[in-house]
Write a protein that binds this DNA or RNA. Structure first.
Lengths: 233, 233
DNA sequence: CAGTGGTCTAGACCACAGG
DNA sequence: CTGTGGTCTAGACCACTGG
């Protein structure tokens, strides 16, 4: 059982993974504690800790003080999607990026927007719609409301050459956010912008971000039909 | 500049975040090295390292040996979606889970499936379709091909009481996988299962998993119209 | 070449939660 | 109460990479 000279936390992690995959440690099993594993592997406990903590973050182990470490019975796959600035997303695919501002207005928002942003129903907010292009083809439609009560600087931007997407990330920090993914049928207006038939299935990402207790922005990004988001697990 | 007694890595992280949000350290800026920060904070360098490493994993810092640590110019939001066993997903929402096997056959797969799984075009694979229900309403449609050449145990399962989704996670480990998200129109057959109009916009998750060099399974999960996947960032 | 982050160590104390 | 993981420390060596 004793293993020699596993000196890096990665090698410890690999050996632990091997034991899990080889079913030496089965789903639901309690594995030896950190001190024992350190002795087995001939390394410091902190090295074992680093390896196991990382596996727990990936969902393969479940750790609890006093109760010990178990192999996850049904590991939850964690798919991490990188939501970058849309311009970079396009350029990283090797395409030419284009940008068209479709609408910019300061007005009273629909109630579901003002409620989500936590502002008064009569507050005027900045509304921006813009089309992002990839090699001149519609790539994504951005429909954004900015809480200009707490981000007054936004009112001074015309968003003609820089997208609100990019300007906000550069200029306004946020501390937390919610994000959701859904498939929705394209409305007539959305379809016109995206140059696709009405009711086409489009991938929609909704984001709502906050800076401490103040909302920053609510945005819906619609991707042209056929768009895929990919990642490794 | 000197800060007193920040003794936990979380408190160091909070102070670093505060400086970033307060624009004391601006996007793109080089921040002091770990040794200096440790002196400032009055803690060990490894504590600073833990705090900064964690922020780098979240995408807020960019770290390179010799070059130092910079505030990310345009932080890439990392949205981590938990892909759990569908039964648990339904039950966690407080709904009653139901399951109906729609199809189980061993046959030659379409070429795009056999190619994706890296098996011969004439190999017979296990094909399973099943409907997952939430409070008796269609929740998700699972369309799965299992590489029964390398997972022969699957041929002995009838998948009538346990879904392939759940059985595989319990029984067959995988070392890596690809996952993609897209919006697609429901085919006539899919629409019938999901009890929705044909061409409804549905969220599709495609997964392909491998155990070392052997493919395990290729699956498409279609969620009923209106389904949302949510997470925090 | 030299400065930076990456990691390992041995030891210590602590927070939490199971029994 | 006690065993477990969570963390901190001080020091050390190493790997990478920019100048």
């Amino acid at each position: 059982m004793n293993v020699q000279a596993a000196q890096t936390w990665q090698s410890v992690q690999e050996e632990v993974l091997r034991r899990i995959h080889a079913r030496e440690w089965k789903p639901g099993d309690l594995i030896p504690n950190e001190a024992e594993l350190a002795k087995d592997f001939g390394c410091a406990r902190s090295t074992v800790n680093r390896a196991l903590r990382s596996l727990a973050e990936r969902g393969l182990l479940e750790r609890r003080r006093r109760a010990g470490t178990r192999v996850a019975a049904q590991p939850v796959a964690k798919a991490t999607l990188n939501i970058a600035v849309i311009r970079h997303e396009v350029e990283d695919r090797g395409a030419r990026y284009g940008y068209q501002l479709a609408l910019r207005e300061a007005r009273v928002a629909p109630t579901h927007i003002s409620a989500a942003l936590g502002v008064g129903v009569q507050d005027r907010l900045l509304h921006v719609m813009a089309l992002h292009l990839s090699d001149d083809a519609p790539y994504a439609l951005e429909d954004r409301w900015i809480n200009s009560v707490h981000v007054p600087d936004a009112l001074e931007q015309d968003f003609r050459s820089i997208s609100a997407n990019e300007w906000l990330l550069q200029s306004v920090p946020y501390t937390r956010g919610e994000i959701s993914f859904a498939a929705i049928p394209a409305s007539a207006e959305n379809a016109k912008h995206l140059n696709c038939p009405e009711n086409s299935a489009v991938l929609a990402i909704n984001r709502l971000t906050w800076d401490h207790d103040h909302s920053v922005t609510a945005v819906q990004v619609l991707f042209a039909p056929g768009h895929q988001m990919r990642t490794q697990i």
